[in-house]
Design a binder for these strands. Structure first.
Lengths: 364, 364
DNA sequence: TTGAAAGCGCTAACAT
DNA sequence: ATGTTAGCGCTTTCAA
């Protein structure tokens, strides 16, 4: 009815001046009311509020943004919303941003280096105040250059570590995997398979002295390499031998590849009593194979994952996993960004976030 | 270096007038070049382009949006990005929108009726030109009222059907499940379990004459009910009896609930040779249980799902499933929205989209 | 405590 | 083919 007619007649939307006119006050006063400026007489405020109500006024965010010079929008560039991990991360970012009065413009980069670069110079960049970026494929040098040239603040988030010079909220890849591995060892596992390890068995030469306290000197590598490093350290901590035969590369970290890797291991009569899945998908796939093959979990083989996806809790048996603190990551990344938005010129910081182990039923 | 200094000194960003000045032309000409207005002399265009290059000019989307009266942003309200189905749907919407020059502001509503309502009157609504909405919990009447009162166009997308009066791009719930069931029947299945059926065993009384051609008279119901209806029809088509014992309610459609439902069925010695999972998660869970229990799939029991998640293709055996045409849904919904954005006052239309069956290895 | 007025950066009539 | 100019709707000095 009236509203529909209104739309058809292409009426001017109601503006602040309409409100001002009806309320018998000036623009400034309406603005004051809307923006909760304290020094407004209660009666005036009431009149304005009433007029707003009556006219169904809503502020025009575009005009406000133009005037203020900011949009309240931040970009979130992630590889793929179809992957549970990124979907859940996006959920977390949106929630946290909401609490800060920010909105999130999510831009999937489709696991494609070109679109990862493109996202930095997109048309959308002029609608956002800053960018949260989770690159997957971009070379560290390309990234560093592009970020340095960007007129807006960028914060990296997620898994990969690219070195200093860029604000960065990362999960504790090394310490998380180390703790996961140690968790199995504490529970009696001695021969622990690393499902999702990188195909190369030597330590990554680029991985130099990776401390997880922000004091890192040089660190440019993949999460595979970082998680492998955590696994190695846990073995070393426990005085257990490092056996390359226990490294199961999977390629992409999916259920199917995890399942296949374990199938192969079983077929090859590999001797093992624990599985560290480098992420939950791989761990869940591994668990699947073990169950089909009739291997008792956790009795004969214990399994632990990494990510704490919702699904992990619902698997049978429920998957023990490293919870990397998605909300913490989101919160830290947004805080870092907010600081830059306020004009901070502090040196870039790398924040490695606390994690914990969600103990469930695939471990003893 | 220079760009960083620039940021620290809080310099005016370069504007169109700067470009105009450097190029020695007027604002209008710069605008013409930027917007690919055809009647610009090549030499002029070159000069402008050069100035743009030199200054590193980027148009200010906010100013443009204010002037144009549109933002080029559409909202996408979906329950939860952590669910693969919605993540993949969001991917599709973003891709299609990209091709239309639109950006997508994704807003998870967290399976909460209040936030589903709230999304319609959000602050973000003044930054978007229209809204794609996939409600899960909202009562049909509430929704209808809210949509009617909205000053911006809304298109519903996804699964539930709310009745006429609202533009709507839906998947073929009934026909898809009917085809899925028929597919198993054609391959010899006779006692087919419906995993994910609603707990009530009577046909939904609200489900009256649901045609899937837009000529629907009355249709206000859940996707559970619609898919059950498809299942019933396929049985009827084949002259097979409808046995309520074969209806396996799961509650939420997840792997875990699908797995549990099949476990119970097996424990109860239920006699069946086919499983129609009401979505892929349920089907995948069912498949999992069947494999653990040593039931030969597809030899002894055939399984088919609904959604065609990426994961379905990677399961072992790969899951046969109904592909509901996510991209088609996205495309149709955005086309519908674009029409309204252009001012169309056509009556609202319900588009039920074509689907197909992705034949894989869980069926013969 | 409120008002007047300028202007954010752009597009699009309207001129020429 | 290009220039002039008036706003889009808001926030924000500056005054009163």
């Amino acid at each position: 009815m009236s509203l529909r007619d209104a739309r058809e007649e292409a009426p001017r939307a109601v503006t602040m001046s309409d409100v001002a006119r009806i309320a018998g006050v000036s623009l400034k006063t309406v603005s004051n009311v809307i923006n909760d400026y304290p020094h407004v007489r209660p009666t005036t405020r009431a009149r304005v509020t009433e007029a707003i109500e009556e006219l169904g006024y809503r502020v025009n965010a575009t005009a406000r943004n133009l005037r203020r010079g900011r949009t309240g929008l931040v970009g979130l560039a992630i590889p793929d919303l179809g992957e549970s991990y990124f979907g859940e991360l996006a959920n977390a970012v949106v929630d946290v941003a909401d609490g800060m009065g920010l909105s999130v413009l999510i831009e999937p980069t489709r696991a494609d280096a070109a679109s990862e670069l493109e996202v930095l110079t997109n048309d959308r960049r002029s609608m956002t105040d800053g960018l949260l970026f989770s690159p997957l494929l971009l070379e560290a040098t390309d990234l560093r250059r592009a970020v340095a040239a960007s007129p807006f603040p960028i914060v990296l988030l997620g898994e990969r570590v690219f070195g200093v010079g860029i604000d960065h909220a990362v999960m504790a890849n090394i310490e998380g995997t180390r703790a996961a591995t140690a968790y199995l060892i504490e529970r009696g596992a001695r021969r622990i398979v690393a499902a999702g390890a990188p195909p190369v068995r030597e330590p990554d030469p680029r991985l130099v002295d990776v401390a997880e306290d922000g004091l890192t000197r040089e660190l440019t590598t993949s999460s595979e390499a970082l998680r492998l490093e955590g696994y190695r350290r846990a073995l070393a901590d426990a005085g257990l031998p490092f056996d390359p035969d226990l490294l199961l590369p999977t390629g992409p970290w999916r259920r199917s590849t995890g399942a296949a890797a374990l199938s192969d291991a079983l077929d090859a009569d590999l001797d093992f009593d624990g599985v560290v899945g480098f992420n939950d998908a791989v761990a869940l796939g591994a668990l699947h194979t073990l169950q089909i093959r009739g291997v008792d979990v956790p009795g004969r083989v214990q399994v632990i994952g990494f990510d704490d996806l919702d699904e992990a809790a619902y698997a049978t048996p429920a998957l023990t996993t490293v919870a990397p603190g998605r909300v913490e990551i989101a919160k830290t990344a947004l805080d870092l960004l907010a600081l830059r938005l306020e004009g901070s010129t502090e040196p870039a910081s790398l924040r490695v976030l606390p994690f914990h182990i969600s103990a469930r039923d695939t471990t003893r």
